[in-house]
Design a protein around this nucleic acid. Structure first.
Lengths: 332, 332
DNA sequence: GCAATTGGTTGGAACGTTTCAAGAAGGAGC
DNA sequence: GCTCCTTCTTGAAACGTTCCAACCAATTGC
């Protein structure tokens, strides 16, 4: 199948080198030949073979992105930002999701390495870090997304999650809440741990304030619903009066449970703050107070960082940290 | 950069053919050699070069997916279904989105063709059909997603959108509504046109029922909000008593406007039915009545179809049509 | 003991580009 | 008419795989 460069060369009565030049360096070829070759390309429907180009070039024009969860609108926005910015650099983006499973993440990284991608953008699971070091040492640039490397050995673009957690919790405390519940998990996800840390920091500043940790297996609507139900069953004494959830998906689930069961008034009996400010946060049963992160910009910045270190691998690693912002609506 | 097969062959004192066999057909190689070669592969950190494999093989293991809008959870689910099913077939998925712009769609198709992808799954814009025919005629299998080809010349997996529109509208009519507004657009998107057609069909069966078409530039939350505001400004006489929106994003926007302005009671003054039954539909201010489509299954089925026609290109084209299902909640 | 068979290994061609040194053609200067 | 420049164009060598015909031993059959 397929017309190749040789066919074009033969048809146009020129050498393959000339066809290649017409395609890649038209200025080196006389105008009349350019036109002749072009017409044959069109006539025969030639499509260049990317595999061959890559093989010759030794690298591809693809950037790999591994996100934790594609169903989370936050990551969709990140991907969108990365895709658009990548287009500007002539790069295309390959999006995959790990579902927070290390083995899936490793598979994706292997694939990317086999494809000699230009670089990898990733929100890693803890188990994947070692592999990432190897990937980087083998020459593939790596940028961490929404996650800083503990030892600062990778460039990263992230949001200050501790600050975000602090912001959310402080808002709850400011409205008089003292028994705060943090809903989220697993703690192996760095963002979750950081947001919890921020919450604890805020609580430490207020006498009498406590943070109760309510772990979840994941950051999904369903997990939030489950926790919401158990909270409704508690009596007023042991029930938290403020809930901060690690992301909006959880918050949506919590809210669903609260409203469905109908025992608790929001925000009077129990206040709720989410995280990410996804598009839907404004549209929930009771519009959700949430912490906003500049998702699309994060994706775009990650690509910029990648391009930068690809051009200049020896430079010190940039770490971009965005500050989150509290968006107050009706749940807290 | 990079260890290649020749390095392994030299190190292990065997030919490249043997190394290749260890990698691809271990059963052809004696156990002791397999082990020896493997150890050198591990020691030297050899990673195979996908470009070279592809060049040799003449095709890639990648399937391209072009969706209309990645921020729409419906398409995210489709992508997820396709990705998972693809993994089972040893294929990886490259997701791109066209944002309903033909030029972006064409760029993606060009890329996919250059990459000699195994096939393309696409929800096409009208302007892209001609290009798709050429792609297909050049030998790349194409499967339409959530869209049937008018002339049945492409295999497709879709949902009966006319039936979905009928279902939604009938439900509104059954509860006594007579002045139905259809919110959606552009009509160049087939799904939108079909859902409208279904709505009109349902209305035609009831005397006195009318369908008013309220066009939008896109299927986003923002567009829904705009329409919602203008509807609130109408007086009771000209205002529709039932609204059917072409997707849930629009419905969420409409709902936001209705609730924010607070002039209309839902569903008493105005009832609302959405489409797609995205995860968030259950969590909106007033839980949304919507038409459900099996998004993840659609993606998975598309991959199956692709694999099928790749194996047997001469067979007649399969067209899978799923039936939508009405999910009744509180807005209608 | 010789031919035929089996199981394992080898060498080299092919996949379709890009690149680059070297060649050809056409002018300009003297 | 000769040399010396330009300006294009060419031919062939990579890039790193996979595949396949040929080869080589070691069995087996008779």
């Amino acid at each position: 199948m397929g017309v190749n460069m040789r066919d074009i060369a033969t048809a146009a009565g020129v050498s393959m080198g000339t066809v290649s030049n017409v395609l890649n360096h038209p200025e080196r070829v006389s105008p009349k030949l350019v036109e002749r070759v072009q017409s044959h390309i069109l006539r025969l429907g030639y499509v260049r073979n990317d595999a061959a180009r890559q093989l010759r070039a030794g690298r591809s024009d693809t950037v790999g992105l591994v996100v934790l969860d594609l169903r989370n609108p936050f990551f969709t926005e990140v991907a969108r930002g990365a895709e658009l910015r990548g287009e500007e650099h002539g790069l295309n983006l390959m999006v995959t999701n790990s579902d927070d499973r290390t083995y899936r993440e490793l598979t994706h990284i292997d694939r990317f390495e086999e494809q000699r991608v230009r670089g990898v953008l990733i929100t890693p699971t803890p188990g994947g870090m070692e592999r990432l070091h190897r990937l980087r040492d083998n020459g593939t640039p790596v940028v961490l997304v929404d996650r800083e490397s503990r030892d600062l050995s990778f460039p990263s673009v992230s949001v200050d999650d501790v600050a975000g957690g602090y912001l959310a919790t402080k808002h709850l405390l400011d409205s008089g809440r003292r028994h705060i519940a943090f809903v989220g998990g697993p703690l192996s996800i760095r963002q979750v741990a950081d947001r919890l840390e921020g919450a604890q920091k805020a609580a430490a500043e207020v006498t009498g304030a406590t943070v109760e940790f309510l772990g979840t297996p994941g950051l999904t609507v369903g997990a939030g619903r489950d926790v919401g139900r158990t909270l409704c069953e508690r009596d007023a004494a042991t029930r938290p009066d403020g809930v901060f959830s690690a992301n909006d998906l959880l918050a949506v689930g919590l809210l669903q449970a609260f409203v469905m069961i109908g025992k608790l008034a929001i925000p009077d009996d129990i206040a709720l703050v989410g995280y990410d400010d996804i598009d839907f946060a404004a549209s929930t049963v009771i519009p959700l107070t949430s912490v906003r992160q500049p998702a699309e910009i994060i994706g775009a910045t990650a690509v910029d960082l990648l391009v930068e270190i690809a051009d200049n691998p020896t430079g010190t690693h940039d770490r971009v940290v965005f500050q989150p912002e509290l968006v107050i609506r009706d749940t807290a």
